[in-house]
């Protein structure tokens, strides 16, 4: 049985949802225009992933196999709607920025993936750690992507103008093709780094 520490760190490096498991691509591409949005989405995913992992691993023996997927999705959807309400009430600008991608956290393959692959088979304690690890790994990679796209796409980081006025922002990064290409190149880069440092 892997130790608790390994369980946590595996989410950040070995099983990084974005670069290793290649999950949750839809919100990643759309939200990572600015670092703030990426951070907001990352935190919301952690919140939902944590709650759903806890509840799903709690009821894992009760739910019959045939209705497993609809039941899990309903639990995840409840938490997502809760996050949606909280953000709408208390953090309106972030809610505006994330827009359609908050409801789409429900079908974000990471959460259902962790529910199916992990929470369903492990105790609540382990599921919590797994959720934190995977969620953190996802947020770090998402913010990294957000920083790169914002830095070169708009010359700022977290909204603060960093590049000098002479810097001509690369508009393509703010638009759809830029997202695909940046993420593709980053995936290639991380594959190289993982092989180079011998992480299998």
């Amino acid at each position: 049985m892997t130790t608790l520490a390994q369980e946590f760190t595996k989410g950040i490096v070995k099983e990084n949802p974005l670069f290793r498991l290649i999950l949750g691509m839809c919100p990643t591409l759309a939200v990572s225009v600015t670092a703030i949005n990426s951070f907001g989405m990352g935190v919301s995913v952690i919140a939902v992933l944590l709650c759903s992992n806890i509840v799903i691993s709690a009821v894992r023996n009760v739910i019959p196999a045939k209705v497993r997927i609809p039941a899990y999705i309903m639990i995840i959807a409840t938490f997502v709607t809760l996050v949606e309400m909280v953000l709408n009430a208390f953090a309106p600008e972030l809610f505006e920025a994330l827009g359609i991608f908050i409801p789409l956290i429900v079908v974000n393959c990471i959460i259902l993936g962790r529910a199916e692959a992990f929470a369903r088979k492990n105790t609540i304690g382990r599921s919590i750690i797994d959720a934190l690890g995977i969620g953190l790994g996802y947020t770090i990679s998402l913010v990294l992507l957000g920083v790169i796209r914002e830095l070169f796409g708009a010359g700022s980081i977290f909204g603060y103008q960093v590049m000098g006025t002479a810097f001509e922002p690369m508009g393509v990064l703010a638009v759809a093709p830029g997202a695909f290409i940046t993420l593709g190149v980053m995936l290639g880069l991380f594959n190289y780094l993982f092989k180079h440092f011998g992480i299998e």
């Binding site: 393509v172 638009v175 093709p177 593709g184 190289y192």
Partner: peptide, 23 residues
């Protein structure tokens, strides 16, 4: 293609170019 770019990485870059075309 270098082994690191195979699979998802190259498909994402291709999708980026296709998305440029669809724009």
């Amino acid at each position: 293609l270098s082994s690191h770019l195979r699979g998802a990485a190259v498909s994402l870059v291709t999708a980026g170019i296709l998305s440029l075309a669809f724009m």
